Amino acid sequence: MSAPKPKAQAQVDWSTGLCDCFSNFGNCCLTLWCPCVTFGRIANVVDKGSTTCGGSGTLYTVVCCLLGCGWIYSCLYRSKMRREYMLKDSPCCDCLVHCCCEPCALCQEFRELENRGFDMAIGWHGNVEKGNGGVPKAPAVQPMTR
C-alpha cells in the first residue's frame, strides 16, 4: 500500500500587481537607475541572509554587463520567493516576467517582501534582530508556577 500524497497548499495572489510600480515611487526610481541595489536587497532577504546585498548586487551587475541578461539570474530568485511564500505564477512564468519586464518584476518582489513586514533597507539580519517580516520569533517564556 502506498503512502498518501501530501496535500498541495493553495497558492496565493501577489499583494500588488506587476505594474503597480508607482505605489513605492522611491523604489521604482532606484530600480530604474540601479536595479542591482533592489536585486541585492531582495536576494539577501530571500536567501535569509546567506548572501549579502552587496555580493548579490555585484554578481547581478557582472551578469548584466558580461552576458547582457541579468534577468536570468533574477528570475531564479523570483521562483525561489514564490515557492517560499506560495505565490501564484502570474501574470506568466517567472522567466518571461523578468525577460520582458525586469524593472517591474523587481519592484513587485520588493513590494511583496515589504508588505510581508520586511524593512528592506536593513536586510535579513536587521529584520531578525527587530523581529520583523515573518521571521520566526522565539516563543514567549511563561514563568513556571506550582
Rank of each mutant, 00 (worst) to 15 (best):
L59W: 15
N132K: 15
G54V: 05
G40Q: 03
V128P: 00
C92D: 14
Q9P: 05
T16N: 09
T31M: 06
W14C: 00
S15A: 14
L18Q: 08
G26W: 07
K48P: 01
R111K: 13
K137T: 09
V62G: 13
A140T: 13
T38S: 13
L113D: 09
E84K: 13
S2F: 13
G55M: 06
M86A: 13
C92Y: 11
C28Q: 06
G68T: 04
N27M: 10
L18S: 07
S15W: 10
W124Q: 00
F22E: 15
T52D: 09
C107T: 05
K130C: 11
R82V: 04
C100N: 11
C53M: 13
T61K: 06
S79V: 04
K48R: 15
V37C: 13
T31V: 03
P136D: 14
C107R: 04
G55I: 08
M120Y: 03
A105D: 03
C65P: 07
K88T: 05
R111P: 00
S74C: 05
G133I: 03
P143L: 15
L96E: 15
V141R: 12
C29N: 12
M1C: 09
P35V: 00
M120S: 08
F25K: 14
R78I: 04
C104N: 01
C28S: 05
F118T: 03
E114G: 00
P4K: 02
Q11Y: 00
S79D: 10
S90A: 13
P143E: 15
W14V: 01
S56Y: 03
N115S: 11
P139V: 04
Q9F: 04
T38R: 01
V46D: 02
L76E: 07
Q142E: 14
Q142D: 09
